[in-house]
Amino acid sequence: MRVSLFITCFNDTLFPQTGQATVTVLERLGHEVDFRPEQTCCGQMHSNSGYPREALTLVRRFVETYRDAPMIVVPSTSCTSTIRAQYPRLAAGDSALLAELDTIIPRVHEFTEFLTRVLEVEDVGAYYPHRVTYHASCNALRALKLGGAPRALLGAVRGMEFVDLADIEQCCGFGGTFAVKNAEVSTAMLTDKMRAVLATGAEVVTAGDNSCLMHIAGGLSRLQAGVRAMHIAEILACV
């Protein structure tokens, strides 16, 4: 299958290894990956922060970029849910754009969703001999309703010791600009998340979204906690 990667601005700029791992896994499974350099940002930050008109510019750019892409894979739960849940609202009133979104959105899939629901693969041939816990980002859990999909992928990784994270439904406190505008509340939430992560004794915490992971890892690193964060694609890429 020919798969277009929407890497997201965040991964492109800060976490290129996540994009590289996504490419590795998809190619290993025999798919052809393409990256369209016109892509930038999905508009999540603008939309969630009170700038819908600015976000709309980025909706149009996304549509321009992926209009003819047969399948679009996104290694980010929050960007995927922005596209699915918010694009139609941002485009409200522009019937031509809405019609295009109607045809594009069904082709957009979050990375683990693409593996488990489109390709129907759980074992991607990964080997990762470490103790790992999984943080279900709010978007994976509630907006995308990924359910046990990420857990199933991790379960098939050879050599891995998986530990469940307590209070998995709890938000890590990132919330985009919330982490800055309400930095103290955000930190209070993060503290509980870190406590849960540390209680697992895991050396790696993983998730399907680097924004949550950047937050959790940023706190853990400040505490010299000895736990690192890795996007789930990076674990699945290991052999």
Partner: peptide
């Protein structure tokens, strides 16, 4: 500035040596 709210309690990752788009290119 306002971003100090983040780094008061959390580290922020530095930009990597190469972006994804540069790697892909």
């Amino acid at each position: 500035g306002p971003l100090s709210g983040w780094t008061d309690t959390r580290d922020f990752p530095a930009l990597p040596a190469q972006s994804f788009r540069a790697w892909w290119h």
